[in-house]
Simulated scan of single mutants.
Amino acid sequence: MHFLQVTPIKISQHLAVTIIMSPRVCVLGAGIIGLSCAVRLQEVLGHRCLITVVADKFGKETTSAIAAGCFRPQDAAPVSGYTGRRSAVGKDIVLLSYNQYTSILHSEEAEEAGVHKLTGYHIRYPLVGKEPFYATFLEKCRKLSESEILSVFPSLPHGCSGHLLTTLVVSPNKYMPWLAKRFISNCGKSIKRRVESFCEMWDEYDIIVNCTGLSAGQLTGDPSIVPSRGQVMRVDNSSGKHTFAYIDNGTERMPYYIWTPDYTVIGGTKLIGCTDSRVSKMTMTL
């Protein structure tokens, strides 16, 4: 759950000139979205402006640091409590993101950035007739028959659907430091600070980009911006298969595992509206 928002700015001739010549840009949030946005702004605007990342948490303190990192966009969330559907603009953003990660994959920095390909399964039940959005752009994606699914996952009930697909995995333990390194090398500035309101920033910056994730709804006062909390485990992958599997079953308990070169991620849960980032023993029993 991430979005961009530019603060209201009083229009004046002086400020208009300031924004064009040398805008002061603040990116709120230092997770994957915040750092990616900051680096992209540096690439587009160059030295025409100073980019500052402001956040109360950086690096391993962020929720991005423990994300599974498997690129698997959905048309809509499969659990109750969320009613939004991916808009045309949202789909454009997904495609832009996929192309960006693909360009990193084919670069000399792929290993350092932690971007790699992985083939695995996405299974859904009850049966879903509509093809998932990712089937329209992934390089390899094949619909599976029910017999194929049950041969791999014999404990699943009848009436399921799924795909075998090759997608991208972005390991945050490598990708986050890689982004931070690029941001700093391009003269980026970071400030550790908790922001309670946009009003605190209006005199300091001309443009504010909101990438605060869990706090976005509270910061904007918009109840339609709802977080989704997950909890995962990282385990040794020395004996694990080089694959992934997602089981979307329409509940808050969504089993999956994702192999990476450094560890295997096992999950997971999807608690809509929960902002608590502490490890929950109750969640571990789900």
Results as ranks from 00 to 15, higher is better:
M1Y: 06
Q5S: 02
V6D: 06
T7I: 06
H14G: 05
L15M: 11
I20S: 12
I20M: 12
V25L: 02
C26Y: 02
L28R: 06
S36P: 08
C37N: 03
E43F: 02
L45Q: 03
G46E: 11
R48D: 06
L50W: 01
V53C: 12
V54I: 14
D56C: 08
D56G: 00
T62P: 06
R72S: 07
V89E: 14
K91T: 01
D92L: 07
V94F: 08
S97Q: 02
Y101G: 09
T102H: 09
L105V: 11
L105F: 12
L105R: 15
E108H: 04
E112C: 06
G120C: 06
Y121L: 11
H122K: 02
H122S: 04
I123D: 00
Y125R: 00
G129P: 00
P132T: 04
E139V: 04
E139C: 10
L144G: 01
S147Y: 02
E148R: 03
I149D: 08
I149N: 12
L150A: 12
F153V: 10
G162Y: 15
Y175N: 14
L179Y: 09
L179C: 10
K181V: 04
K181C: 07
F183W: 03
I184M: 14
C187K: 12
C187T: 01
S197Q: 10
C199V: 04
I207P: 00
N210L: 07
S215H: 14
G217F: 03
T220L: 15
T220P: 03
T220G: 15
S224I: 01
P227K: 03
S228L: 10
G230C: 09
Q231H: 03
G240H: 04
F244P: 10
F244Q: 02
F244C: 05
I247V: 15
D248E: 13
D248P: 02
Y256W: 00
V265A: 11
D276I: 03
M284F: 01
